[in-house]
Write a protein that binds this DNA or RNA. Structure first.
Lengths: 133, 133
DNA sequence: TGATATCATCCGCATATCCGAATAAGTGAT
DNA sequence: ATCACTTATTCGGATATGCGGATGATATCA
């Protein structure tokens, strides 16, 4: 088991301010949460996630749905599985993907709501460091 | 106003399956949500977000907190602002950052819970395409 | 005006990420 | 065994992202 993955609120924080303790205080834990968000930070993976939200989906179905190369889609799906967003079940030569935890849908709904409120700002964000959007 | 940012559930979907409509169906909207998640997909920005969660924070405070160059931190903060996660208030020569919407905290809590359950899997994820972790 | 404090932007560089194409690996049917 | 079908992995190349350091811009104060 990996250590320090609880949000944790050690005694020695910033003086005079409460620590919300939403996110792990240790760099390792934060890196993990960041990785999780990066897994959600690709339009294709979001499309796959939503595609699987309506029921178990086969790999080939996914390839047809997102219209990318089979290899690329397989990698995206593997990423979603190892990041805990999808589960995979093998049956014969096919792989069947589905949402791992229904709370993911809540997460997506909430994010969508926040994004919708700030859509134009976000669209204008050149992100960190200068780079074409 | 940008178009097509509602989750939307157009009539012509996949046959025989309900469409959850969690995420915008159009590529533009999905790209926006993905961008939002990428903004959350950096450990430093997560640290800054949590830092500002306990109250208004000045830019210089943030620099001291995350221990990166001032320029880098300014860029991270700007990214968080334009992605709708922080708001900034100017006062004299200082910039004061705070959380824009309390629902962000719920988002972080929920994500943290999901990550904690799959920590080892996520840690082992080489992410998409081969790349050192 | 000149010095200092604070924040924003630009530069070059290193790494991460995404992509298609090719190829490997496993399953099932003939 | 051989072939077809599905999934997984590797490769080279293009773009995105993060970093420090230098520089620019603005506000405050002597």
């Amino acid at each position: 088991m990996l250590r320090g993955l609880t949000p944790a609120m050690p005694g020695g924080g910033a003086p005079g301010r409460p620590r919300p303790g939403l996110i792990p205080a240790d760099p390792e834990g934060r890196r993990l949460v960041a990785k999780f968000f990066r897994a959600l930070g690709d339009p294709t993976r979001l499309a796959l996630l939503e595609f699987c939200a309506s029921g178990e989906r086969q790999g080939t179905e996914c390839v047809r749905h997102v219209q990318l190369s089979q290899g690329r889609v397989a990698t995206h799906l593997a990423c979603l599985v190892t990041c805990g967003l999808l589960t995979v079940r093998r049956e014969g030569r096919s792989a069947l993907y589905s949402i791992r935890d229904p709370r993911e849908l809540e997460l997506l709904r909430l994010s969508q709501a926040l994004v919708a409120e700030q859509a134009e700002e976000i669209a204008s964000c050149t992100r960190v460091a200068t780079s074409p959007g």
